[in-house]
Design a protein around this nucleic acid. Structure first.
Length: 360
DNA sequence: AGTCTGTCTCAAGACGGC
DNA sequence: GTGTCTTGAGACAGACT
DNA sequence: GCCGTCC
């Protein structure tokens, strides 16, 4: 769910941190992507009629592969260098939130069964969308595909967002591409939203610059995190009656949650019992992430025969379709390196001073 | 008036042939 | 060992300061 | 551009 109302908060209090970017400016840029989110979307949407999705003869779902294959090709064709990061175990603090979601899904499952019995097509469609889940095997198939396509792939120890942020902090990628605003709490230098929208919706890429957030809010990282916790995050409840607006003014006034609590009229604003805001803060400050020490990211040419063996051989994709898509990719590759210099000179100036990527 | 809460809604991919 | 997560925006009504 | 199809 991210941070409630953070986009609006930032556009009100730190407008300079947001900037629209052209899709073309991402040529040759490395970006870290939370793959799990994309998989989920594809499962929900691709090739479904009623409760059917795309499958091979063995009945294995292939929607996620169809979607990821096409999308990855589109990115590579555009000269973007994606790194895919997969979710690991969710932090235990998220347990409450997850339990709620599970309840909802169980409900939807019951409704789905009922709808099937009644033969209510529309209801079946709706409910089956709500019961979608991504299995471990499906994630691993996407990893396999991504590796065959020559991309770096990571299985994050915990939340993918946190590891994407870590890759960006380490200077290994230009930005984390995500729709989830939590990424910024992990002090991710750059967050790019709508990266994949241009083709489908014509939305421009929206970049958030972490340093500018702190400058314009005139806050430290810790204070920004405190504001986000007050707004409402996945890790703990927030104080009723306190939303984005009060969160900012309270932190500005008192500096941190501890001090703020001493001055808060708890009659009006009841603080949750045993409120684990410190633990939430800790998760944002020191998340469990992939180790970036000495890490080098490499992109290699797609293994065409490997991809065909997997998608066509195992998953029954149309061979011609797959080969055609890969052919287009090859054609675009030459172009991309030709354009590299031009686009570099045309590009916005990039500061390299902020991240100390050298380590003794 | 401004603010927060709750609840509800919706929509969510991409290609290729016509 | 095993199992496993969606998300965001917008609209609107109602309640509180 | 809409619409059926992708597996």
């Amino acid at each position: 769910m991210g941070i409630k109302g953070l986009t609006k908060l930032l556009s009100d209090h730190a407008p300079g941190c947001m900037r629209e970017q052209k899709f073309e400016s991402y040529l040759d840029r490395k970006v870290a992507i939370d793959a799990s989110m994309h998989i989920y979307q594809f499962m929900m949407v691709i090739g479904r009629q009623g409760d059917q999705t795309l499958t091979n003869d063995a009945g294995e779902v292939t929607s996620h592969l169809q979607g990821m294959f096409m999308r990855t090709c589109r990115m590579l064709e555009a000269g973007i260098k994606p790194v895919y990061v997969f979710d690991g175990k969710p932090p235990t603090m998220k347990g409450g939130e997850l339990a709620k979601r599970k309840d909802k899904r169980d409900e939807a499952e019951a409704a789905l069964a009922k709808a099937k019995e009644a033969g209510d097509q529309e209801e079946i469609e709706k409910m089956s969308k709500r019961t979608v889940r991504v299995t471990r095997q499906q994630s691993q198939e996407v990893m396999q595909l991504a590796r065959l396509m020559g991309l770096p792939v990571f299985e994050a120890p915990c939340e993918a967002e946190a590891s994407c942020a870590a890759l960006c902090k380490a200077g290994l990628v230009y930005a984390a591409a995500s729709e989830d605003m939590d990424t910024l709490c992990f002090a991710c230098p750059k967050l790019a939203r709508n990266l994949m929208s241009p083709a489908s919706q014509g939305k421009p890429i929206l970049e958030f610059d972490y340093e500018k957030i702190l400058t314009e809010l005139d806050m430290t990282w810790e204070q920004f995190i405190d504001v986000c916790i007050l707004c409402g995050c996945d890790y703990c409840d927030s104080i009723k009656g306190v939303g984005p607006v009060k969160a900012v003014s309270l932190i500005k006034k008192h500096g941190n949650i501890e001090t703020l609590l001493q001055h808060l009229d708890t009659e009006k604003y009841p603080v949750p019992e045993d409120w684990p805001y410190k633990e939430a803060r800790e998760l944002f400050k020191h998340p469990d992430v992939v180790n970036t020490d000495g890490l080098e990211l490499k992109w290699t040419a797609p293994d065409e025969e490997g991809i065909v063996a997997f998608l066509v051989g195992e998953k029954q994709f149309g061979e011609e379709r797959v080969r055609n898509t890969l052919k287009k990719l090859k054609a675009a590759k030459g172009k991309s390196s030709q354009n590299r210099l031009e686009s570099f000179f045309g590009a916005v100036t990039v500061k390299s001073s902020t991240t100390g990527k050298r380590k003794e």
